[in-house]
Amino acid sequence: MSQEIAVVGSPDFTTGFRLAGVRKFYNVESEDADELDDAVREVARDEDVGIVVMHDDDVAELSREPRSIVDTSIEPTFVTLGGGAGSGGLREQIKRAIGIDLMDED
């Protein structure tokens, strides 16, 4: 079972996670879309990674195939922060990752 957390994004975005102890990170220059696409493909193939954190603005910049990986991957689970990733988006990500809706009031 995959247990590591990885962070993909600009050095400014990944620094806080690195200081918090995240050991896997992929620094990507914001103006290089191909580098971002490659980082997503690489982290998706890493069998040690269970959760990938990305900024919502970076996800919006992905090309079609890496974007599909982020949107459909179960393991690793991609979690987006910032931008348009409001509580509804995070709720859907958690539901997809664990298979149940923790906020379901039925």
Rank of each mutant, 00 (worst) to 15 (best):
E47L: 05
G86Y: 10
A20C: 14
L62E: 00
R91P: 01
N27C: 06
R91T: 09
D38W: 10
P76A: 08
Y26M: 03
D104F: 08
D12R: 14
G82L: 03
V7M: 02
S68P: 00
D56H: 12
S68L: 03
A39C: 14
E35H: 09
A85R: 07
R96T: 09
A39D: 11
S63K: 08
E29R: 09
D106Y: 06
D34G: 08
T15F: 06
E105P: 01
A85L: 11
A39Y: 11
G86R: 12
E35P: 01
V70Q: 00
S68A: 05
K95N: 11
D56W: 07
M54Y: 03
I51P: 04
T14G: 00
F17L: 05
T80S: 06
V28T: 09
D12L: 14
A60D: 08
S30L: 13
R96K: 15
S63A: 06
V70F: 00
R67W: 03
D57V: 06
D56T: 08
V8R: 03
V43E: 02
I94C: 15
G84Q: 12
G50W: 04
I98L: 10
G84H: 11
F17D: 02
L102T: 14
E47M: 04
A33M: 05
N27T: 07
G16V: 11
D48R: 15
L81W: 02
R96N: 10
S10T: 15
V22E: 02
D101C: 08
R41V: 01
